[in-house]
Nucleic acid binder design. Structure first.
Length: 463
RNA sequence: GGCGCGAUGGCCGAGCGGUUAGGCAGAGGUCUGCAAAACCUCGUACACCGGUUCAACUCCGGUUCGCGCCUCCA
């Protein structure tokens, strides 16, 4: 498959270092708060990527880190008056619950920063030994970018472009060069009891070194794929490359993929605009994880995505259409395996082709919807019969292995609903349309939609 | 200032040098007791100005507007 590699800024044919297996690292959350839908766009993108790799037959080893020590987590724990680990545990659990809501497949490893400090210390030691890092008077350790000529190759920044910006913290006067970044931060009183002992002093690891140490531990010194949001390109991923390649002398990552941000109702998501949404917020408005997932994956990952509630409504309708088709196929499926109809085979080819083209999900979905139309038409023409329904059902499952949209909630009618349905059936048999419509209205009020089909009444849960 | 991205029909959102993207919403129709679902038909879409070309939404140049990154935000 073709993917767009941020490193080369062009499309490349994807070929993992080891045949048949993809080693893949994903920057995970900093667990200091609930993640927002922008974060989940990245995680859903990575999930679709992971599922696509598996769909094309590669075995996948994916690692997603959990940053559970940094300025924000320390500050949060302090404000809450609880130990750091207790504070972050809550958000770790929330994060995994959210992934489940969005039907994101679990990665193979979720290493926590606080559990890998020895590995980070080893990496920093190697960088010190090789002359790529230096200690400051206060016991911090910095990476010397002047020692790594390729610094800037991912972000395509030259050193001239790295002038000190307004955001450089004032307390970083210890650095030789303003663009040098911290590998190790010396303990300061605000850190409280959050500290580890290193040969050069007490403190805590810098953020970038965490990803280098943990990715290389689980995936090796060189691996295939590293992903994240575009905002991670610089400095985070640039710094990871510098640290890792300086320490090992080997290429760090072969392909880098970054997803664009999302905006909300046409505007940048921000708390002051009141359009900052966590996943929980959106669920509370009555939308399902499945609907949110649909919206997040329906745009190409390298394009900014405009997240709107109108789009969620459209997603609900689109998913309803998919569910309708699936149910019709399942209803038509018999025991004979059958042969996949031609229109379905065409869809499969087009769907796969779209994925191979740098994960073109809009095109893949277009293929799916075209198949839905062709399928209904074929079944209508055949009086409801569907030759090859078994094979078709299997295909739908296969495509959903990539999409992860699953089946709609199949709520079972309870006794009361069954009773109403029986009443309506009787009314219809004696052509008492007024009574039939009254019962339908009652069911609708209870959230059930009735449809009269050739096979009798069918109810579906609405809302 | 540096690097980069975008502008598509009411909304979302692909794409390609010439042939229907797709979804949602809307209009008409078929079917149905009525609905619903499904199917059929319907929108003279590609920011603006030039240029290249037999042909440009698609390539090139410029303009306007918007956006991202330039030290720890997916």
């Amino acid at each position: 498959m073709q993917i767009y590699n941020t490193l080369s800024r062009r499309m490349e044919e994807f070929a993992p270092l080891e045949a048949g297996r993809v080693r893949f690292y994903t920057c995970g959350p900093t667990v200091y708060d609930y993640a927002h839908i922008g974060n989940y766009r990245a995680y859903v993108f990575e999930d679709v990527l992971r599922r696509t790799l598996k769909h094309f037959g590669w075995a996948v080893t994916q690692v997603m880190n959990l940053t559970d020590v940094d300025d924000k987590t320390i500050r949060g724990a302090k404000a809450a008056g609880v130990p750091l680990s207790e504070y972050t545990r809550r958000y770790k659990h929330a994060f995994f619950a959210d992934l489940k809501t969005l039907n994101v497949e679990p990665a193979e490893h979720y290493p926590e920063a606080t559990a890998h400090v020895p590995e980070m210390i080893a990496l920093v030691s190697a960088l010190l030994e090789r002359g790529y890092a230096y200690r400051s008077d206060d016991g911090s350790v910095y990476f010397r970018i002047a020692a790594f000529p390729e610094y800037g190759k991912l972000a395509h920044l030259d050193r001239e472009g790295l002038r000190p910006g307004a955001r450089v913290a004032q307390d970083e006067y210890e650095k030789d060069n303003a663009a040098d970044f911290a590998l190790w931060k010396a303990w300061s009183p605000e850190d409280g009891d959050v500290a580890w002992d290193a040969p050069w002093g007490r403190g805590r690891p810098g953020w970038h070194v965490e990803c280098s140490a943990m990715s290389m531990k689980y995936l090796g010194e060189s691996f295939d794929l590293h992903t994240g949001g575009v905002d991670n390109i610089f400095p985070h991923h640039e710094d990871e490359i510098a640290q890792s390649e300086a320490a090992t002398g080997k290429p760090f990552v072969k392909y880098w993929m970054h997803c664009a941000h999302l905006i909300v109702e046409g505007q940048k998501m921000s708390k002051s605009l009141g359009n900052f949404h966590t996943l929980r917020d959106v669920l509370e408005r009555g939308y399902s994880g499945r609907e949110i997932r649909y919206v997040l994956l329906a745009a190409h990952y390298r394009q900014p995505l405009n997240f709107t509630f109108a789009a969620l409504d459209a997603a609900r309708a689109a998913l309803g259409r998919l569910d309708e088709f699936r149910q019709r196929v399942e209803g038509a499926a018999g025991p004979a395996p059958g042969v996949l109809p031609e229109w379905a085979a065409a869809c499969r080819a087009r769907f796969d082709g779209a994925l191979r083209q740098d994960l073109n999900m809009p095109e893949a979905l277009a293929a799916l919807f075209d198949m839905v139309r062709a399928g209904h038409r074929a079944m209508d023409a055949a009086g409801g019969a569907c030759p090859g329904a078994e094979a078709l059902r299997e295909l739908l499952g296969c495509l959903d292995g990539v999409l992860g949209l699953g089946a709609g909630a199949r709520a079972d009618a309870d006794a009361e609903v069954e009773g109403l349905l029986a009443r309506r059936r009787a009314a219809r048999e004696r052509k008492d349309w007024a009574e039939a419509d009254r019962v339908r209205a009652r069911l609708a009020a209870a959230g059930w939609e009735v449809r009269d089909t050739a096979d009798g009444q069918k109810v579906t849960r609405r809302g």
